[in-house]
Structure formats: structure tokens, C-alpha cells
């Protein structure tokens, strides 16, 4: 296994900040911090509460802009991945998270916290296919796709 104590501490601290952000959104606006839902509901013609969604996503973008300056090593694109593979992945992520009503945040953090059975099933499923996909790509293509 390849890991360091420092990166584990950063993972726990970063994770805790994500949990705090989800808590802040919940206590202030009553909403679940599920990124795919916040973004995807903007595409519904009937959505009347667009402004907070846009501002939450703008917050992510602002952080990204600062992150590139102050912690550039933490923001890395996938190596040896063709744009075709990335586009195919994006289609799966977009369609899948909407069909499955959530992603790593909505199901993974918020749903498991609420002991939601649906989220438990979703997390087990996307972890399983995520592990299988990444491992299969490494075995069959050496990570070059």
C-alpha cells in the first residue's frame, strides 16, 4: 500500500470540513449538500430556487480558483486519460448520479449520516463499480485509456 500519515490526516481534516459545510448548508437553508442534486435540479424547468444553487456552485468555483494558486499540487487531472475517456466518464457521472438520486456527497456523506438505506445501497454500488472500473483499466490498459 502507498500512503502517508500526513495525507491521511489531510483526508480526515478535509473530510471534516466537508461535513461542516454540509452542516452549515443544512442549518442555514435546510438543504442537503448533494452536489449532483444541487447542480442537476438547475436543469429542471420547474426549479424555482435556482439562486442558492448557483451561489453554492459558484463557491466551489471560487475555492478552486484559490486552490490553484495556494495548493496547486492538490488539484491534478487524470494522467494518461484521453479526452474521449473523460467525456464518456462525464456522461456516466451525470446520467448516473441523477438516475440514482445522488453522488459521493449526497449519498456518501449526507445519506449515510442519516442512516438512509437507499444511500447505503447506492454507496456500496458505486464503490463496487468504481473499484472494478479503475482496477480493470489498470490491468487491461496499464492506466492508459
Amino acid at each position: 500500500m502507498v500512503w502517508s500519515t500526513e495525507s491521511v490526516i489531510m483526508a480526515i481534516v478535509g473530510g471534516a470540513l466537508i461535513g461542516l459545510a454540509a452542516s452549515l448548508l443544512l442549518i442555514a437553508t435546510g438543504r442537503i449538500a448533494g452536489i449532483s442534486g444541487i447542480l442537476g435540479d438547475l436543469l429542471k424547468p420547474s426549479a424555482g430556487d435556482k439562486q442558492w444553487r448557483v451561489l453554492f456552485i459558484f463557491g466551489l468555483f471560487v475555492t478552486g480558483s484559490l486552490g490553484v494558486v495556494f495548493m496547486p499540487e492538490q488539484i491534478q487531472t487524470p494522467q494518461d486519460h484521453s479526452l474521449g475517456a473523460v467525456v464518456a466518464a462525464g456522461l456516466c457521472v451525470g446520467f448516473g448520479t441523477r438516475l440514482g438520486s445522488g453522488c459521493t456527497s449526497g449519498h456518501g456523506i449526507c445519506g449515510l449520516t442519516r442512516f438512509s438505506k437507499r444511500s447505503f445501497v447506492a454507496v456500496l454500488t458505486f464503490m463496487a463499480t468504481g473499484f472494478i472500473t479503475a482496477t480493470a483499466i489498470q490491468i487491461f490498459t496499464g492506466g492508459n485509456i
Partner: peptide, 21 residues
């Protein structure tokens, strides 16, 4: 829908290393 959706999301995540956030 929940299971197929989550499965597709996992495939995209494993393929690119990106989830939505």
C-alpha cells in the same frame, strides 16, 4: 433506478477519478 444509476456513476468515477464536486 437507484442501483443502475449508482452503478453508472461508479463506472464514470473509476474511469476519470472525478465525482461531481
Amino acid at each position: 433506478k437507484l442501483v443502475v444509476g449508482a452503478a453508472l456513476f461508479g463506472i464514470g468515477w473509476g474511469l476519470s477519478g472525478y465525482c461531481p464536486g
